[in-house]
Design a binder for these strands. Structure first.
Length: 136
DNA sequence: GCCAACGTTGGC
DNA sequence: GCCAACGTTGGC
């Protein structure tokens, strides 16, 4: 099972809203980057992603699960991009970007190395460590 | 609010 | 097919 991280500006779509959407989930539309698209295409149903608040908060705040694999994004008029459906699994005590950057073993996280990647893979070790930090 | 990093667009 | 100009993201 691969692990992922998806980003959203809470002013546009927050984890609280994701929780409100319930088990029906929502489509993760709007990705317009080819590398991020590759990651979306690689997602399998049942795989989990960290939900990261960018700009405001700058922290991992929860876990979401893939409930529908890659399909066309109807909001993309070029027809090139797609999306997956995600549902909230659970909230996490926030793990801030600042905290992640202070952890040497997380120095290779895409979140640290390429701050603009909106959908990114997370290694098993990174996943476990961030959960550890969340647990305090 | 600024700006660095990076992706995309379009002229040539 | 190159690359300058431009737009966007997101940390600070």
């Amino acid at each position: 099972m691969a692990r992922w991280l998806v980003k959203s500006e809470p002013a546009k779509w927050s984890f609280a809203q994701q929780v409100e959407a319930g088990d029906a989930g929502t489509h993760w539309n709007g990705v317009r980057n080819h590398v991020a698209k590759q990651h979306l295409m690689a997602m399998r149903v049942g795989e989990e992603c960290f939900f990261y608040h960018s700009n405001e908060g700058k922290a991992v705040v929860g876990v979401v699960e893939v409930i529908k694999p890659y399909y066309p994004d109807h909001t993309d008029e070029t027809g090139k991009f797609g999306m997956v459906d995600l549902k909230a699994v659970r909230a996490l005590p926030p793990v801030t970007l600042e905290r992640i950057k202070r952890e040497p073993r997380l120095a290779e996280m895409v979140l640290v190395r390429n701050s603009r990647m909106s959908v990114q893979p997370v290694t098993e070790a990174e996943w476990a460590l961030v959960l550890e930090l969340a647990a305090g």
